[in-house]
Design a protein around this nucleic acid. Sequence first.
DNA 1: CTGAAAGCGCTTACAG
DNA 2: CTGAAAGCGCTTACAG
Lengths: 331, 331
Amino acid sequence: MVVTIRDVAQIAGVSISTVSRALASPDKVSAVTRVLVEDTARTMGYRANRAARGLVTGRTTSIGLVVPDLENPFFGSICKGVQARARSAGYSVFIADTDEDPSLEDEAVRNLTKQVDGVIICSARSTDAALQQAAGDGPLVLVNRALPGVPSITFDNGGGARVVMRHLIALGHRRIAYVAGPVTSWSNRERTLALQAFAAESDHVDLIELGNFPPVFSGGMQAADLAVASGATAIVAFNDLVAVGVIERLRQRGLQVPADLSVTGFDNVPVSTLVWPNLTTVDFPRIQMGRASVDALLDTVLHRTSIRPAITQIPVELVVRQSTAPPPQRA
Amino acid sequence: MVVTIRDVAQIAGVSISTVSRALASPDKVSAVTRVLVEDTARTMGYRANRAARGLVTGRTTSIGLVVPDLENPFFGSICKGVQARARSAGYSVFIADTDEDPSLEDEAVRNLTKQVDGVIICSARSTDAALQQAAGDGPLVLVNRALPGVPSITFDNGGGARVVMRHLIALGHRRIAYVAGPVTSWSNRERTLALQAFAAESDHVDLIELGNFPPVFSGGMQAADLAVASGATAIVAFNDLVAVGVIERLRQRGLQVPADLSVTGFDNVPVSTLVWPNLTTVDFPRIQMGRASVDALLDTVLHRTSIRPAITQIPVELVVRQSTAPPPQRA
DNA sequence: CTGAAAGCGCTTACAG
DNA sequence: CTGAAAGCGCTTACAG
């Protein structure tokens, strides 16, 4: 039922070696043969069995992608970028959702390692040690997390945090609350450090650190009350979802954004333009990051001499919308 | 560097056949041998090469999943369900994003067919003919689209449409606008037919059909003005994103939801609780659908005698929130 | 219960 | 430029 190279060879009246060559390395075969084989293969609907090819070449032309949560639009975008770039390079992608569980993540990586040419781990929740180990077992690229000795693609979290602070301070804010994300989040650490440094360098600016909170809507709902009690006039949320939660809770308490308080997010996920007021946030080009991670992985897999540094940092930019304004005038 | 069955056999002092049996069919081997081989394999870090196994068994223990857009949370949820169920059944999943392009979809299916045991196509954008053809080439399950002769899992779109109408009519609405989705959308056709039928059966109810519109925020923005001009007091949007667009445009025009107009969506994506007012919508259990599609596919792949009908329809339910209310009193 | 052998569908030196 | 042969890492009748 399924047509193999043997069938094509028989119909075309050549050896299977010739069929293989005509299809995989057309220049190693005469023009006549090539056309003959190509035509036969096409009309017979022949498609090479990639597993069989992989067995002899040692390359599967597939990669693995591990993400914490496919339902989260942040990761959806990255997947999209990975998938697009992989296809254009002729690679297929295996996907694994770890449900934010470090042990499932380790298992997924182990499972994939043997059946793909390389693995991309997105926002790894696992320990440094486990990741370092995985990196030893085969080509590996980390996305949205940096680890010494392992190729990584990250966003410039620090730069994003600084540009947010600069924006709020320029508007006149002096008491700024940061609603922190999960303790285990690498991005959260990066942002916290940059916010602290920026506040310390600025005159008369107080940074109030709140949290940690879960990186979702309900986290923002919780955090909003603490932020109000702290006397902050601006709230920097860990991400857009948290920012939306903050705004909702403020609305419930009769506070206006941005008239009474300014609120910012991180990520620029679609929801940031679906809520009112539209969020001022930091755009993280996630599809680009997905693409870049495939490039980095294939550099390793194909032994391409890369101009890329081991750790790539993707620049980010502030998107000013309606959720930020000067603080209210003192009575 | 990579340990094969041969290495394990050598260290354990048995033949490769025995290693293979001890690992794959433990009951065909003595208890002593089994333990010996298992221990050796574990300490050596042996993992079977799935491609090699697939070559001889004819089964890859992987499936393919084709979706129109990984960035769309609707599909993200389905992917999550598919991935979870596949893992628990010992299957890996290849993913392909078609960017809503029918020809990319056909190509993805063709590409996958040879390297997986079966394919799940989500919200297929391709033609009936192409899908019918693909179904002939190997196990195939359609998700969110029905096609005679091809196993499908769908939501009860008609039931969803009827329950929305019933809700609005009970609130007192008599002029109801439907903001239609894409012409090519199977779900849109299903919903339209059900809405028309329900309106026809009800006394003094006018259904105003608007569209077609793109199934996103901007589609809603466009549609809102037409809906207002039509004199409708309630707007049934093709999906939640369109509903959010409608509400935003109404807000811009100074109209209040639900005081001036009621608005409903379909899908119950997370954004429906992030906007204000929270959307009244129809919940589509997408993760469940993802899981069900894997079950249906494996029924075919493993020749399981299935109690399941060829076409499964998943029930849906109305979620009443803040975007619907009785129509305003006539002046 | 165990091993030697054949073979899954390919690719790739090696001859000619 | 082309073909016969070996072999990639497994599984599975077939003997013993």
